[in-house]
Amino acid sequence: MITEPLILSIKLAAVVSALLFLIGVPLAGWLSITRLRWKFLIEAVVALPIVLPPTVLGYYILVSISPDSILGSMYLDVFGSALPFSFEGLVFASILYSLPFAVQPFLASFESVDPRLSEAAWTLGASRLKTFLTIVIPSSVQGLITGGVLSFAHTLGEFGVVLLVGGNIPGSTRVVSISIYDNVQALEYEQAGQTALTLLVFSFLVLSVVYATNRRVWAIWPKHF
């Protein structure tokens, strides 16, 4: 049965992208306006998952959320269950893993908004927060869509981190990439092929729809006004 891992993967990717909007937009917004000297350190930390092997990242996440760790024991105390090898643990890991794929497009589009638009809003009495919400965000639709799509696609395709943090529990952590790996290990090529093709077609469709919509948005919305 290939639908269960597929649905699990899509669910994970959707939850992670949604949470990444909530975390990534304020983080990128803050990065775009802060004059903090140590900003580059935060940018570097955010970008780490791009260069680190997923196993390295997965290892650190696993250690940091284990019930012996501060974070892991706190979670255990509050929710009564452990993070490793659970769906929630996967969500946590995927957020870290996909963070740069959301934050970087967000940041790039916030920074490309003409600073004079913000200044104009300030002279009209709008606070910095209001300016960000009413001027910067509406002018960054393309970047927001791109960031959302990239984090969704990236989460959908993750393997190494999932294997280390989530393991292979059907219905809970057994996502598409793991099930394909399993099938291949068990020499079930037909099964693996079906799942792989489904994922390929699904990903292609999602990306096509998003890019097509995106393009239409921008054809009537020239950046240089």
Binding site: D114, R116, L117, E119, A120, A121, T123, S139, W221, F225
Partner: peptide
């Protein structure tokens, strides 16, 4: 404040 290139919200 009137900006040289107007800075209207697009």
């Amino acid at each position: 404040f009137f900006f040289q290139d107007y800075a209207l919200f697009p």
